[in-house]
Simulated assay, not measured.
Amino acid sequence: MASAASTHSLFKSVFGALRTLLHLTAAVQFTYGIYYDYKYVEFPTPTEPDSKLIHHPFGGKFKYLTFLDAIIQAVYYIVSLANDFVGTNELVPRRPPAIRKFKDWLMSTLAFPVALNVGITFWTLYAIDRELVFPKVLDPVFPGWLNHVLHTNIVVFIVLEIFTSYRAYPTRTKGLTGLAIFMGSYLVWIHIIKHYSNVWVYPVLEVLQLPQRIVFFVAVLGFTFALYLLGEFLNNVVWAKEVKLSQRKAK
């Protein structure tokens, strides 16, 4: 009996250390990616009079959902790392501290659905026609490792997080409302940028007529909400016992 308890304790310690290492690796990686992108990546300007302008200084890097998502991921993993030391990773704590509540909310409402939105949408459009989302002219200034950090690793790490950390999801109404506010604000933001710069943030929007753009925006919003529900579903499947225990405690 004592041996079994000792083995369980050792497994719990090793698992906790690996989870902390995951959070540390992700926090460093995404923070550095943000820094490098902001500091060193400069988009080329047209050299020919009739060349297409693909970037306008208005809004800077903050007009790209990829960049905003990288900030969300960095904040999430920094919070997760802090929670590893000063919060709690107890599966269903009786009184979760504020940092644990914020961690769970951020993962559920923004970090998971926005990361998958960015990753899946980017690589889908890239496979169809990369000029619609990442023109070849960017290759000399946007290194491949940074491309994968911002468009691939965000998905890899957030999926790993689903399987290594249980989180208490907010009510579906609250979670989807938070996500809708963020995505709605971003759609308003890219239209403000278009108004003042006369350049769409993403080349794909340049080739779409107004009705097609409306359909595109609705599809993106619907897809993002579906990803929220996917995250909730995966959490309920992977952590079924903890979800049931949490629901019993809430009654």
Rank of each mutant, 00 (worst) to 15 (best):
residue 96 P to H: 07
residue 102 F to H: 08
residue 184 G to K: 07
residue 59 G to A: 03
residue 210 L to T: 08
residue 155 V to H: 07
residue 122 F to Y: 14
residue 107 M to F: 14
residue 74 A to M: 06
residue 28 V to T: 11
residue 226 A to G: 11
residue 78 I to Y: 09
residue 30 F to I: 01
residue 180 A to I: 05
residue 68 L to Q: 11
residue 59 G to R: 04
residue 41 V to C: 04
residue 229 L to C: 12
residue 45 T to N: 09
residue 145 W to S: 11
residue 13 S to F: 14
residue 136 K to V: 08
residue 239 W to Q: 06
residue 100 R to C: 09
residue 77 Y to N: 09
residue 238 V to L: 06
residue 156 V to F: 07
residue 142 F to Q: 00
residue 142 F to S: 00
residue 155 V to P: 00
residue 74 A to W: 03
residue 90 E to F: 00
residue 225 F to D: 01
residue 7 T to E: 13
residue 94 R to T: 15
residue 178 G to Q: 02
residue 240 A to N: 12
residue 29 Q to C: 01
residue 119 G to V: 02
residue 204 V to C: 05
residue 81 L to F: 14
residue 47 T to K: 15
residue 40 Y to P: 04
residue 46 P to D: 04
residue 154 I to G: 10
residue 215 V to A: 15
residue 92 V to Q: 04
residue 123 W to H: 05
residue 115 A to S: 15
residue 239 W to Y: 02
residue 208 L to H: 02
residue 191 H to N: 12
residue 198 N to D: 12
residue 194 K to V: 01
residue 61 K to V: 11
residue 144 G to F: 01
residue 223 F to Y: 12
residue 83 N to Q: 10
residue 98 A to Q: 13
residue 101 K to E: 13
residue 61 K to R: 15
residue 45 T to G: 01
residue 85 F to N: 11
residue 12 K to C: 14
residue 13 S to H: 12
residue 57 P to C: 05
residue 202 Y to C: 03
residue 205 L to F: 09
